[in-house]
Design a protein around this nucleic acid. Sequence first.
DNA 1: CTGTTAGCGCATTCAC
DNA 2: GTGAATGCGCTAACAG
Lengths: 334, 334
Amino acid sequence: MQPKLKDIARELGVSTATVSNVLSGKGRVSDETRRLVNEKVSELGYRPGGPGRALRTGRSGVLGLVLPDISNPLFPAFAQAIEAAAASSGFGVLIADSHGDPSAQTDAMQRMIQRGADGIVIVPCRGTQVSDLPLAATIIDAASTPGNCVCSDHHGGGRLAVEHLLELGHRKMVFLGQSRRSTVQSDRIDGMQAALSVDARADVVWLEDGLPDFAALARRGATAVIATSDLHALTALTCLQSAGLTVPEDVSVIGFDDLSFSARIAPGLTTLAQDMPEIASAAVAHLMQQLDGAPVPAARIVPMALRIRGSTGPVLKTIPPQDRPIPQQGDLTP
Amino acid sequence: MQPKLKDIARELGVSTATVSNVLSGKGRVSDETRRLVNEKVSELGYRPGGPGRALRTGRSGVLGLVLPDISNPLFPAFAQAIEAAAASSGFGVLIADSHGDPSAQTDAMQRMIQRGADGIVIVPCRGTQVSDLPLAATIIDAASTPGNCVCSDHHGGGRLAVEHLLELGHRKMVFLGQSRRSTVQSDRIDGMQAALSVDARADVVWLEDGLPDFAALARRGATAVIATSDLHALTALTCLQSAGLTVPEDVSVIGFDDLSFSARIAPGLTTLAQDMPEIASAAVAHLMQQLDGAPVPAARIVPMALRIRGSTGPVLKTIPPQDRPIPQQGDLTP
DNA sequence: CTGTTAGCGCATTCAC
DNA sequence: GTGAATGCGCTAACAG
């Protein structure tokens, strides 16, 4: 049995309130009593219990994190960042997965409330609008979503990607998305379109229409692919490689989100990374301000960062792949 | 303000005990009163609040999930499965990340206890031993870890991988691990070794010693690579491809864990998948039994499943890569 | 300045 | 069949 406030008080012959005062540093307590209490506390290894405190103060020190799909590969970094940001504010994190289902999302939020969460960080399902919660909430979605509180500058990320390719001499690109209905993907592609110079062109291809033939796109002149996710960039890269094309010599490839594998493939994947720590701490800070009774702060847009790796390179004078020598690698193992 | 038990009671002119009895279905209540209460409850949208209940019953309906590294790409599937299993038992999930640090792990567990978690599911840091918790706990690690409660049959997975390759005619393989200190990886590689036929050989290579030259390994006769994670298999596969070798014609590649990208690359990655739903529900069930006062159940070992995709194929009569025609892909886009 | 009292929301006695 | 009383662990307001 964990020691309770009452145990400390009884053993010391003082009241529970006195012990509580010592621990919270609030009420005035004599130095002698304070010393005794602190001693006993560390002796018994007392830790104030959550439920009692929550009941009394109306604050649980827990926040809910509602996600549309935990299995999304971007989630680990995100959850980790939120957990870290919350922990540094002394908060715990309760997770829930809505599986992309709006009614499950509403359910999940209800359950977080019921469990006593002080606030909710929510990444909404596509097309869902989160409205009038009886609770502090922070919405993380695309900037163009109404009610959004914190997000990455997806549009700016798209621009950076295209600008990088333009500098390398690319003028014919492919923009690769998964779903037209994703606001984040649309924002990214809009940013790409906006950055195209007058002499550059791009085709937009959606994976929801079926897997495109990347080698054929290259044969028709495209020298670069920008995908709205590293996952799709990886698909493009491996399709190109297994069709005998070389990245980046034949085609440059860029992704988004700097997923776990992106630095570990050959060539390393150039990508636009979200600043997860910044987004997470902004989201948690946003929540804390609401809890402190401040008005809902303005939306915060966090810039994305271009991480250049081996998958992008300058446009080469056109040499048909079959005429080029097969690249050789040094032998590292004796 | 959320409605309280007292609000329902007052509006109906009954006592809070009666309302509580109706909701829990325990004490005897007249059908008429029952109907009235249920009506009022759904009218006001009353939900029993967690903290009050937790304080009274000593059960919070929340379990803690302590992970060594949320950013591990295997985690999403795992967290999702645990969350689903917990939710179907009416439990919430509080997450914590120990960042591989044993003291942070202990801290995290303390905080879960403090927050009132009823039990803990823990994937321990490497080399950590979890001992005598004042709480129900389920440890998920390798089978060879003392105290382990639930895990995949990593050894059997290794065997399945090698058996698959032997059937395809492979006799010279490379086993690729990341860290010698990982019990899971060791178990997997032990299983691989155990399944080698007398005429087959394998070299074990560790990424912690530096990135090997996969093309050179192939030139010296290896026709297959089995990595202890899809992440490392992907590294091998892309290194081979960018060195001009073809998968699976020149070298077959197998990974572990069926990560999110594994089905989306070209060729699709053959892999050994963990049965996450089964592991998660076993872990949660294990916890529930302890909470119900049952003795700690025996450890449960869940089989792994071989998912064959395009990255493994039969050994071909040796044709040097440069003499083979460059593969062509059909054009899907008009 | 110190310590006692009251009550957060709920479920469980036990009288009626 | 129902209701009043009790206390889970803790802290805010109050009396000593």
